[in-house]
Design a protein around this nucleic acid. Sequence first.
DNA 1: AACGGTTGCGGGAACGTTTGCAAAATAACT
DNA 2: AGTTATTTTGCAAACGTTCCCGCAACCGTT
Lengths: 344, 344
Amino acid sequence: MKYVTIIDIARELGISKSTVSRALAGDAQNVKPETMKLVCETARRMGYQRNETAVNLRRQLSKTIGIVIPEAITSFFMNFIQCAQRDLRAQGYRTIIAVSNEDIVQERECLQMLEQCRVDGILMCVCHSEANSKMFRNVMSRGIPIVFFDRHVRDTAASQVHLDDVTASVFMVEKLIRSGCRYIVHLLGPAHIGNAADRLHGYREVLEKFNLPYNPQYVVEGGLSAEEGARAMERFIQTGLHFDAVFGFTETAVLGAKSVLQRMHFRIPEDVSLCCMSGTALCTLVHPTLSAAHQPTEEMAHTATRLLLEQLAHPDQFKPQTVVLPGEVMLRESTKPLPTLETV
Amino acid sequence: MKYVTIIDIARELGISKSTVSRALAGDAQNVKPETMKLVCETARRMGYQRNETAVNLRRQLSKTIGIVIPEAITSFFMNFIQCAQRDLRAQGYRTIIAVSNEDIVQERECLQMLEQCRVDGILMCVCHSEANSKMFRNVMSRGIPIVFFDRHVRDTAASQVHLDDVTASVFMVEKLIRSGCRYIVHLLGPAHIGNAADRLHGYREVLEKFNLPYNPQYVVEGGLSAEEGARAMERFIQTGLHFDAVFGFTETAVLGAKSVLQRMHFRIPEDVSLCCMSGTALCTLVHPTLSAAHQPTEEMAHTATRLLLEQLAHPDQFKPQTVVLPGEVMLRESTKPLPTLETV
DNA sequence: AACGGTTGCGGGAACGTTTGCAAAATAACT
DNA sequence: AGTTATTTTGCAAACGTTCCCGCAACCGTT
């Protein structure tokens, strides 16, 4: 039950706790090599484990970074966390994860909890592009830097890193059209997620470029979950409108749509091409494999932690930065192959 | 940068910090109602956020529970964490997540980190059934209770909660046989995961029950990941042995096998039935949907946290307990339907 | 008017560590 | 040997809480 403290070690060796502290900190400037060795050895022998709580209280910082994510189902966030955690641990930071469950009230609670834990900084993926922005400002005004990732945040003085949604969706929808699709359903993301507008924008841009008519009936709220996606698909099918492709805001919703289509014996991709943004490893596990634009998860995590660590290291010369990363589009079995150059 | 402390509040009101502390703690016994209201109001007004670090140092505990998981890809662990987190927060506990990446060295580091953070207890899913058992004993001897979940741990004095692997696999394999399968491949889990033996045991038990021969060539190491599962499937197919079903240790490996089969135009379930243990929501997203025995994730999380909290509340009267939960078998499209009673 | 009981509050030590400053011990010079 | 640098050590304060202990003020009882 009782942990060994530096005082125990000091008593054991008949020296002062200051010296023990310095020795364990490896302060070669101020402690004789022999003493140092002696202290370190007895510390190991006695099973000393430094009390981080005391250190944090003394140092007035926690060496802890909070990570707030909206959900913990998609592997994207899990991968992100793992990457970020690795980078942060390398710099001696712990992490504490908080899940907002796509709920702005829970998101506020998460932030408050992180503040009480005196985190030094926060990596955050918001569940609403503006709902909690005054609270974000509050937190930052208390000197806790926030870096937003993945989802856009409207007018903030913080750094952000996210996908180039417009370019990626333009790329993706263009592929659909070049492969022969003309009637493309878009499963729209929720309005409160900023990226939804960008992805829709990309979709419309391509239609315009190819002189195809934009029909709002082909844009349906697809939600985030597989269930919502499935329901959206069913609703669209009931309209009786002809379609030959589905381009979705996110993977899970499209997978929901996919089940519906397959259950109704649509052939993929012969009858309907399927593709989405925000793809993860899941896309390669389903059948047929799903074409998708992937977030550069690792790069996003590296960039976000780098921005945060830089801000922590030099709070004075901080300039908010928005890093936009290119998505990687992977064409798989769920979309028709592009015509070869010869046939064009 | 500077947080408001109880001393600031005390100074503001011209009273002592003791009173402030008591008032904020809601100690109605020892503080006059008016004082209490006054203090709470000024605290809110001044934006007071209690310093958890100081509290923890003083209280000699951290109100923090560590959760160690082997990976963060499967949604099982994510769901588990979310459930556990909810239960723990309800009791005023924070959680800190550590991922061992299926590596025993990293697992040790995780534990050490948690000790340094002075966690009050640990929920743990081991990556090896015995490799770190002396360290587990060490941690527990220091008074930090551990509850192991999901994966079996050989001879430990700690509480455990896991699936009834034998029964669930018996049930699953029986379904295969009753649906007409005779040549069932088993994708075996890694030897260092205790559950693998139980699941294999269930598989053999059913064969015996139905007087079917046990052929070790039909049992192949399937690993944990989709890649390993795919490779295992390929290797088995190359043996040229006839098979009509695959029963896998885990979902991801079976999904890997599934891609291989589908790419080779095996029809599922007409040519090959597919099913697995450790199913998650993923099973319903793939096509055809995958029959699986599901872990009762929420129940497991509830039970594990309950055991841990009980042990924390009454360390003296602690008796290690092993709770074995029944799995829920879901038959989906990847296995042939059972013959109806009339036809039997 | 003196007493015991309650109520509300303040003083101060403690939790384990770091760190500025001063003191002591050692080394390096005259 | 004496002085000055230099290295090595110890003292004590601080971080923000909690909580034991004691003191005062008030209450009701004899």
